[in-house]
Design a protein around this nucleic acid. Structure first.
Lengths: 241, 241
DNA sequence: TCAAGTTGTCTATTAACATAGACAACTTGA
DNA sequence: TCAAGTTGTCTATGTTAATAGACAACTTGA
């Protein structure tokens, strides 16, 4: 007798999205107690079991933690991501008390387009290795990256990355102990279907697209990449120079 | 035996979103035939009935039209929305061959904040009427707007708008035959839960936030408003002055 | 005309979603 | 200690989502 038109998005998912948004925009602070399941159920006009389904999904990603008899507590918040010349994903995530993880999606040969050739100081058509990877904080995907490296300078970069799962460690494998970010460009976009699945987002969410190039201490380009960050999970900080 | 973890977004909705995105970004052109239901089912690795559910949802919004024995055809495309000083929603939509519709959500008294007082040349705390409305092209919601008008100059603006359902006609009711846009500011954001429901979007979609003020022929401010456009349904055009 | 391909409409089955109620297990503060 | 409040788990029921197969109704092009 409900006659409610279906939106195709499960109620529990709508509730989970709402709570995640509350955590992301600071209405719920890390460490604080969420409203009780009954209260959440009332505000969303939904059954308590539906709320439990939503909280379970958030708990599985490590965003909240339930304590029997007491309440459900916020674990994580939007990740503060400072952008400076020594940006290191693992350090940023680790400093926030989270465990950084990396996962190789795909590595294959490619050739340099005009843009990439310019960034890497190579000729157009030069052989490249293209690495698709996803980076996570605990169990929450933060961003997916497409990284291009010279195939001549970094042979077997794909299999090396598959082992170390960190760009810093990959470069260390080639005896590059230090590097820095030479350029960063940020734009916004809507997530495409492929990235949506990798970031565990529904279609249409916003992503922050970051194009960046890393160089060695002699300012020689090492790699260039395009990263897509789940907009609601990070907050870029630009230091006042 | 599938063991696939549920995302909380129905498959048919994912397919519908994908096709809508294809129409929005021009992969499918208005008037053209879509791939057959079987082909779509194969590309999304989904049952034909699931595709039919997706197409039915799009057809109900007037985005596609099915012809038995022949195929399914694209009806509408992303709405081209020129931004100029004489921007009129009804004219823009009508020029695109669509039927403009307006719907009053809510009208209530309000008082001027500092920003609104400045835009309308009123004092802070001056009495206002705040109108929440949604505007559609055919059956597709395009944007929701919050409009503020001086309560002294436009008494009963809420009930007038409820009847005429057009800002142009509302102003005509107060003998204002002509007006123009004095300022426009565009930003981007993620849709909030309230707007998402009104725009028939899922949570997290991008909206274009347009702040604008309309003035009469003597440059005296009439109304100011904040509109949120469903980003995937419009394309703002800035004319080269 | 006819075969191939397309959309429309049935039936049937399984899994996921959502609601409802009851009670257990546990924490907290008075 | 104890009452109130919280999360955890169980059973039960109805609805929606998704798949599967079959065939009708229709269009198109050879």
């Amino acid at each position: 007798m409900s006659m409610q038109e279906s939106s195709g998005v499960a109620l529990w998912r709508q509730v989970a999205d709402g709570i995640e948004r509350g955590i992301a925009d600071g209405r719920f602070i890390a460490g604080e107690k969420l409203p009780s399941e009954m209260e959440i159920a009332e505000t969303y006009r939904v059954n308590r079991h539906t709320v439990r389904r939503a909280l379970a999904a958030l708990a599985e990603r490590g965003l909240v933690r339930a304590e029997r008899g007491s309440g459900t507590y916020v674990e994580a918040q939007r990740l503060a991501y400072p952008l400076h010349s020594r940006t290191r994903f693992s350090e940023i995530v680790g400093a926030g008390g989270h465990e950084p993880r990396g996962k190789l999606i795909d590595a294959r040969d490619d050739v340099a387009t005009r843009e990439i050739a310019r960034e890497l100081s190579l000729k157009i058509g030069a052989p490249l290795i293209r690495i698709e990877s996803v980076r996570l904080a605990d169990r929450t995907p933060i961003c997916v990256s497409t990284t291009w490296l010279s195939a001549e300078r970094f042979p077997d970069a794909g299999s090396v990355f598959a082992n170390v799962r960190s760009m810093t460690k990959l470069l260390a494998h080639y005896d590059i102990r230090d590097y820095r970010r030479s350029s960063t460009r940020i734009t916004g976009a809507i997530v495409d279907a492929t990235d949506a699945a990798r970031l565990d987002l529904t279609l249409g969410h916003a992503v922050l697209v970051v194009d960046s190039t890393d160089v060695d201490t002699a300012a020689k380009p090492l790699l260039t990449k395009r990263s897509r960050f789940a907009a609601e999970r990070v907050e870029f900080l630009i230091e006042n120079s």
